[in-house]
């Protein structure tokens, strides 16, 4: 192969679910592929791979993003939380438990993205970040079903578990002070 054809590789280090990870990656590797293929954290799902479905949602430095639309090498020194970092089968995150209780899924493929997104949505409402359906830009956003539906619109569920997802998030939101 000519030099121009040799894939460029770079070292990157970041923290995933509290653990420091160092990888040497082809620059083309998305954060999603780094998590799934290199770190074998397969909880984060690849749906569309184009930022349209939300299945790949993870939390980076406290904010939810589509891990398919960002390069791993762009996250030097950052803190990444995936579904594996939120809870375990023995110690479920409250939203994981609520999704089970309210039947917030059918096939489950979109669920890790839904839950990571929902965790961040509750933080965004707490931080006072408005949404498209917030009636008054100056007021604190309310925890209504309309707000949750709008804020969760970047997570598609082809089984159509939407109403149960809203119920699960609503229950957990109600428990928070």
């Amino acid at each position: 192969m000519s030099p121009a054809m040799t894939p460029a590789r770079l070292k990157v280090s970041f923290t995933v679910n509290g653990e420091k990870r160092v990888l040497e990656l082809d620059t083309r590797t998305t954060l999603l592929d780094a998590l799934r293929e290199h770190l074998h954290l397969t909880g984060t799902k690849k749906g569309c791979d184009h930022g349209q479905c939300g299945a790949c949602t993870v939390i980076v430095d406290g904010r939810r993003i589509n891990s398919c639309l960002t390069l791993a090498v762009m996250h030097e020194g950052e803190r990444i939380t995936t579904i594996e970092g939120l809870g375990t089968p023995d110690r479920l995150h409250p939203l994981q438990a609520a999704f089970i209780k309210h039947d917030g899924y059918q096939c489950g493929y979109c669920t890790p993205g839904q839950i990571c997104s929902a965790v961040a949505v509750l933080d965004e409402i707490e931080a006072g970040i408005p949404s498209h359906v917030s009636a008054d830009l100056a007021a604190r956003p309310q925890l209504t079903a309309a707000e949750l539906r709008e804020r969760m619109s970047g997570n598609i569920c082809r089984c159509g578990a939407y109403s149960n997802i809203v119920e699960a998030i609503t229950e957990v939101a109600g428990r928070q002070p």
Binding site: G51, G54, T57, R63, R64, I65, N66, L69, S117, A120, V121, E124, P130, S131, H132, S134, R151, M152, S153, G154, N155
Partner: peptide
């Protein structure tokens, strides 16, 4: 706020 999704706007 009318554009994209919460993840993309972040």
């Amino acid at each position: 706020l009318a554009g994209a999704s919460g993840q993309l706007r972040n």
